[in-house]
Design a protein around this nucleic acid. Structure first.
Length: 535
RNA sequence: GGCCCCGUGGUGUAGCGGCCUAACACACUUCCCUGUCAAGGAAGAGAUCGGCGGUUCAAAUCCGCUCGGGGUCGCCA
């Protein structure tokens, strides 16, 4: 680091450098001082990509000097700035909520902080300010938002960190559409201001959860390309192919996607697709390649078809598969027979892989969608009981209220996700504001009065004093920034992220604490704090 | 918890049973030259190939375990 004093002078003719912003001038140095010296950096600030991610994280202070990282830091700053601006203009109030709270058994595993003053008791860090913001609605904060830090102790992914930031918001006296309008307006503005080069589809697409799963195999579909799925369950039921029939008999589905122009895929290419299906949990993948030549799917002959099921089913079944998947000669049909959720995961993975591989993905397009009408309850097969699909405070759709008693599985919640390009960017719902409805939900998920008191007593006390109808959502800031920046991992938009094993290679956190600290916190560890170091 | 990929001087890679006494590029050190700006020239230092164990006459290379990183399914809103 050098401080130089001198005079700026025009460069001599011929010595200018058009590649530099300051290439026409130079500093004639009169005095110079070394302010600070530096060791040789572990990698070059100019390189892109600079080094292995582990090295980058260990030397994050150098990694962050890179122009790209500075750009991403600035992007994130601007996103939150627009959020503040936009919401403030619309009457929202930023309220901070505690990050030392209390564990509730719902949802993800909590990060926990021991209490010194209360032996044997622990704070939990909030997975989201959900209950706090609902309490703020009771308190008369009609429009709340917060750029909130959230924590969950679950396994990490490219789009999941143990601590992340969310734009949390909640509004009183509104319907679902009012929340959508605010968020859609905000996100449209963010994309237009920060990515003016990009294409943005407005208004945002709307899909029901059921439609999203049927057509794309995902509740966060990448809508930048087609490759829509088709349901073959009925065709497969009587097709004469045992894998299909047994899947259907055991309550599963048979679904497929037609991949244009891929009928000539080699054994190796097909095996790769089978691997994707298997690693997604499916037993396998059935392919039907329809050779180019015939004018339409109805005119194909036996010799046009290449498929392992060819000898088990007759040509009419193949034609019906072709018609349902809207395949043309020259296409490759990929069929999964499995439980509905597994089939969806597998086909979604296939669809995304092929969409990218076939060049169908426009990197410069933001295709947002609202996915609505999520199922309100899931049946827990192990425990043979209903549980809340989201959290017990999401309200059922008005039209479904009558179904709650006889068929909880058919009840849809006024719950919605915001998705974009295959990312889930946020989730929210219209909340239940009537105690009777909450009681009904608790009854369905089998909570006794005691369960309810332990888990939500503090919260329900607030509900006894007049709750306005309210709705809101939480939106992942890290994912939004990664998406805007064209990054595939949220680690790129977090200044100091953690590795997949939740460690920080720079701080070497988590670290041990002293015996004194443990004692003060009334904690006895089963594994010594330095076990990893010594064994 | 399962599966997959990766781990070679400071950094990025090559090598994938013997030709490896481990190569290349950038970075680094010293010297030379100098209107340079991705400078140039000369010389040089730097890795027991993540670790441990095994197979083999011979292992960076094959096998097992382990550690670290990444992706993903489960999990997770």
């Amino acid at each position: 680091m050098v401080q130089a004093t001198g005079t700026i002078a025009r460069r001599k003719p011929g010595a200018e450098n058009p590649n530099m912003p300051t290439g026409d001038v130079e500093l004639v140095v009169e005095s110079a001082t070394v302010l600070n010296s530096s060791k040789t950096p572990p990698f070059e600030v100019a390189d892109e990509p600079p080094a292995d991610e582990n090295v980058r994280l260990r030397y994050r202070f150098i990694d962050l000097r890179r122009p790209r990282m500075q750009e991403l830091l600035r992007l994130r700053h601007k996103v939150t700035h627009i959020m503040w601006d936009h919401l403030e203009e619309r009457g929202f109030l930023h309220v901070e909520t505690p990050i030392l709270l209390k564990s509730t058994p719902e949802g993800a595993r909590d990060y926990v902080v021991p209490s010194r003053v209360h032996p044997g008791k622990f704070y939990a860090q909030p997975q989201t300010p959900q209950q706090l913001k609902q309490i703020l609605m009771v308190s008369g904060v009609e429009r709340y938002f917060q750029i909130a830090h959230c924590f969950r102790d679950e396994d990490l992914r490219a789009d999941r960190q143990p601590e992340h930031t969310q734009l949390d918001l909640e509004m009183s006296f509104v319907h679902q559409e009012d929340v959508h309008a605010v968020v859609e307006g905000l996100y449209t503005r963010i994309v237009r201001e920060l990515r003016p080069d990009a294409k943005l589809i407005t208004p945002f697409t709307r899909l029901t959860h059921e439609e999203a799963v049927l057509r794309f195999g995902s509740d966060k579909p990448d809508l930048r390309f087609g490759l829509e799925l088709a349901d073959l369950t009925q065709v497969a039921a009587g097709a004469g192919f045992r894998v299909f029939e047994s899947a259907v008999q055991s309550g599963g589905v048979v679904r497929a996607v037609a991949v244009p122009g891929c009928a000539d895929y080699t054994r190796k290419q097909l095996d790769e697709l089978i691997d994707i299906a298997k690693s997604s949990g499916a037993g396998g993948l059935v392919s039907v390649a329809i050779a180019e030549g015939p004018a339409s799917i109805d005119q194909i002959a036996d010799g046009d078809v290449r498929s392992p099921i060819k000898s088990h089913v007759n040509l009419d079944v193949i034609k019906e598969i072709g018609r349902r998947t809207k395949a043309s000669p020259g296409d490759l049909v990929l069929i999964i027979a499995a439980k509905e959720k597994v089939a969806a995961v597998a086909l979604n993975n296939l669809r995304n892989t092929l969409g990218r591989r076939l060049g169908l993905v426009d990197d410069n397009l933001f295709h947002f969608a609202w996915v609505t009408d999520f199922p309100m309850f899931d049946f827990n097969e192990d425990q043979k009981r209903w549980e809340s699909a989201h959290n017990p405070f999401s309200a059922p759709r008005e039209v479904d209220v009558a179904l709650m008693d006889q068929d909880p599985g058919r009840v849809h919640a006024q719950q919605y996700d915001l998705t974009c390009n295959g990312w889930e960017l946020g989730s929210g719902s219209v909340r239940i504001h009537r105690p009777e409805m909450l009681e009904k939900v608790f009854k369905i998920i089998g909570y006794t009065q005691q369960d309810v008191d332990i888990r939500f007593g503090h919260f329900l006390r607030a509900f006894e004093y007049g709750v306005p109808p309210h709705a809101g959502m939480g939106l992942g800031l890290d994912r939004l920034c990664a998406l805007l920046g064209g990054e595939t991992s949220i680690r790129e938009v977090i200044a100091f992220p953690k590795t997949q094993t939740a460690m920080d290679p720079m701080f070497e956190s988590p670290g041990p604490i002293s015996g004194d600290q443990l004692e003060e916190l009334h904690i006895v560890t089963v594994t010594p704090p330095d076990a990893t170091a010594s064994s």
